[in-house]
Design a protein around this nucleic acid. Sequence first.
DNA 1: CGAATTTATCATATTCTCATGATGTTAGCA
DNA 2: TGCTAACATCATGAGAATATGATAAATTCG
Lengths: 157, 157
Amino acid sequence: MWLNSTAQTALSAVLYIAEHGADTPIRVDDIADALGSPRNYLSKTLHALAREGVLRSSRGPGGGFQLVDPPESLALARVIEPFEPIGDRRCLVGRPTCADANPCQAHHRWSGMAAQIEAFFNETTIADLLVVPVQLTRTQPTAPTSREERSHARAAG
Amino acid sequence: MWLNSTAQTALSAVLYIAEHGADTPIRVDDIADALGSPRNYLSKTLHALAREGVLRSSRGPGGGFQLVDPPESLALARVIEPFEPIGDRRCLVGRPTCADANPCQAHHRWSGMAAQIEAFFNETTIADLLVVPVQLTRTQPTAPTSREERSHARAAG
DNA sequence: CGAATTTATCATATTCTCATGATGTTAGCA
DNA sequence: TGCTAACATCATGAGAATATGATAAATTCG
């Protein structure tokens, strides 16, 4: 997979918190139930995000996890990076040092793609993923989404 | 990593064979030495590529591995797919069923990027990676590479 | 045939990721 | 203080990916 399962869970959990935790902290148990992920492992994962300053945790009754920054300011990269380092992916054949000056054979073909992927994770925010997708049901002639196409329009197909 | 280590090794090995195996088969030992990968595991990996019709193996003196098709006809996807299924990567959060009609939250933002990545692996060939990169040394004012920019030009940065 | 060469495969480690269950720690509240 | 809610952490284990060493099977060539 593009993201290992821990990174996928982290991203899903942050999305869940962003959606449900506007005012109050969200408990690990609720997230675990919603995502179907193991409680303790999820706790560990969220704790790692707290260490990174992405989440804030509080214990005791009424405790749980909250976003530190608003979803608009939270790039996917910050959520994913602790579990799936994005910078390690610049070389297709895994060479530790692979740069323009000392390239592997795939470097010149791959580096552009790698840069695009990196940009996707750096520029897409949690808020971008919260936008409810336009339904195909057509039961409601919903008002035009006016402006909603931002910079990554080309990255959405 | 974008590719697991087995897929990386497979790609490197196929590149090695394409570079050195114009007329004669290449032995596993030579490839293992060149790549610094374990001999038996590499043997198993190459055998899998032989099953897929990417390589042809022959035993006994003078034996080894050869490409079945010319490098121009060998897409990276065919080399990678047996070890790192590319189609499994269309959903960023790993949902088994994630499509336009039943999207995860990230789907609309991610699907375009996923399609580009998939296209990269399907359209880039082993031959594309064999082109010796223009050296930065400038010791020789090498003749212009005339035409060498094909369709993936935008994917190389 | 018989020896040498080379891939194929099997049994077994090793390492890493992911998961589980038990227990510790902190916070709120009566 | 004592109870309960909630996160934190530890010890352990299962399973997959990766690696190793030994052996089998096929091929060439004298």
